[in-house]
């Protein structure tokens, strides 16, 4: 756990989107209300491959949603095969250091097993791809994408 991070409170993988809600913990000055920040998904094997979507920040609250299509098309267009892990960060305007998304401020230590989420599937010309949020053993929030073999 870092001193500054984006504490996840709810994750909603439904209706073809993934919605993440939470609050910023330990950040210096709060950005002005209605600030637009950026949620990034960094491919763990290819650190140069970063997907992003806008996030809203209000006080210490943040909220961001992206369609699973964002991940599916990135995988399909680059013809990336196999299981891919994507790490989630929140970048605040004027702040060079992205905040890792995670859930550290509760009493549940084994989130990888206890807080699980359903996968959603997106169609691509190369075949269907499933996208599933999960908590890592470090209690951080990541995604797994993998091809769905019929």
């Amino acid at each position: 756990m870092t001193s500054r991070h984006a504490e996840v409170e709810q994750v909603w993988p439904r209706d073809g989107r993934v919605l993440v809600m939470g609050r910023i913990v330990g950040a210096a000055p709060a950005p002005p209300p209605g600030t637009t920040a950026i949620l990034t998904l960094t491919n763990r094997d290819r650190p140069g491959l970063v997907l992003s979507c806008p996030a809203t920040v209000d006080g210490d609250r943040f909220e961001a949603a992206f369609p699973v299509e964002l991940v599916v098309s990135a995988v399909a267009s680059r013809r990336i095969d196999g299981r891919q892990v994507w790490d989630l960060h929140l970048t605040l305007p004027g702040d060079p250091e992205p905040l890792r998304l995670g859930r550290h401020l509760d009493d549940i230590s084994d989130k990888k097993k206890v807080m699980t989420f359903p996968a959603q599937t997106g169609e691509a010309p190369t075949g269907a791809v499933s996208v599933k949020p999960y908590y890592t053993v470090m209690q951080n929030l990541s995604l797994i994408s993998r091809p769905v073999h019929a």
Binding site: Q10, P13, R14, D110, K113, V114, T116
Partner: peptide, 18 residues
């Protein structure tokens, strides 16, 4: 039970703690 929790969209609310 886990599939039921997922299907009912209770993954933020109901937890199988082990």
């Amino acid at each position: 039970l886990r599939r039921l929790i997922h299907r009912l969209h209770l993954y933020n609310h109901a937890f199988l703690m082990g």
